[in-house]
Structures are given as C-alpha cells and as structure tokens.
C-alpha cells in the first residue's frame, strides 16, 4: 500500500491490462504500432513530413517503419529520424533528401525524370506537360496515362484515366 491512492489505482489498472489478453493486445498495438488506424488519405499535405513518412513507410517499407518507431520509443529526436528514414529509403534506390519532400508524391527524380531539364521534353516526346486543375474550365477530358513505380516491390505499372471531367 502506497501513500498515494492514485498510485495504487495505477498498479491495479496495470495488473488488469496485463492479465486480460484483449487489453494487453490493445496496449501493445498502442505501443508498437501507433499509426495502425491512419492511412495516407488521412494525412494532409500541410502535415509534417515525419507523419507522412511514417504512414508511407508503414505500407511500403515495414522494416523502416519498425526502425523508426523503435527510435521514437527510445527517445530519438525528430531531427535524427529524418536522416535515418531518408537514408534507408535512399538505400533502396529512391533518392530522398529530406522528409518534407515526401509530401509531394512520387519522386520523379528516382525514375530518371528531371522536369527542370530543358531537354527533357525533347528527349521524351511521348511526355507532354499538361496542367491539371480541377477548378478551371474547360475541364480536361483527355485520357491521361501515368507510369507508377511501386515503392514496395519496384515494379512499374501503367494507369490510365480521365481526370477532372465534370460529373453529370
């Protein structure tokens, strides 16, 4: 019996959690997989790069996610997490300078597409710059095709679709 009854309550609750498999599982998930309910769609572009990086690595690179969560639980600072995650993703062939750039989607540089290169469109006549805006008329009605390289297995896939057409 301690002097502070609140501490007794904590000990009691800790014992209940330890002895109940369901509560123990919930506690373990909160400890080891804190982002289990989050999806990339839940993240806003304004959110910090670390949050997006954790969501992305959880889906695409679970081992990097595990390393990042372990470091968070060990008290590693956000400043130290940035080079760890970027370094691990870079080692898999996707150059990443900092976590902030993860908010901008697929890294074109990694696929060899340097849009700022003045010769890019001459060397790739099958690619045309096309502004896609969802609030400017006329809406784009063409079929757009993108090539996507999946982060988890490195495979390429082609997706086509009609973007920004008005809904009728």
């Amino acid at each position: 019996m301690t002097a502070n009854p609140l501490l007794d309550t904590y000990t009691f609750l800790a014992g209940v959690v330890r002895d109940d498999p369901f509560l123990l599982l919930a506690n373990a998930v909160a400890w080891l997989d804190p982002l289990w309910t989050l999806d990339a769609d839940d993240m806003e572009l304004e959110d910090d790069g670390l949050g997006i990086a954790l969501v992305v690595t959880r889906r695409a690179f679970p081992d990097i996610y595990a390393g990042a969560v372990e470091r968070i639980r060990a008290g590693v600072s956000k400043a130290a997490l940035d080079p760890f995650i970027c370094g691990e993703i870079t080692r898999r062939g996707i150059p990443l300078d900092n976590l902030e750039s993860m908010s901008y989607g697929i890294p074109l540089d990694a696929a060899g597409a340097l849009l700022e290169d003045p010769d890019f469109y001459r060397q790739h006549p099958d690619v045309v710059p096309h502004p896609l805006c969802d609030n400017i008329l006329p809406y784009s009605r063409r079929i757009h095709t993108v090539w996507v390289r999946f982060l988890d297995n490195g495979e390429y896939a082609r997706f086509s679709g009609i973007w920004f057409a008005e809904l009728s």
Partner: peptide
C-alpha cells in the same frame, strides 16, 4: 527485439 516485435504487430494489425 523491438524491431522484431513492431514488425510482427504491424503485420497483425
């Protein structure tokens, strides 16, 4: 050990 546990529970969730 931590990485192993996190990897397992992430796959489970």
């Amino acid at each position: 050990t931590m990485v192993e546990a996190i990897t397992e529970i992430t796959a489970y969730t």
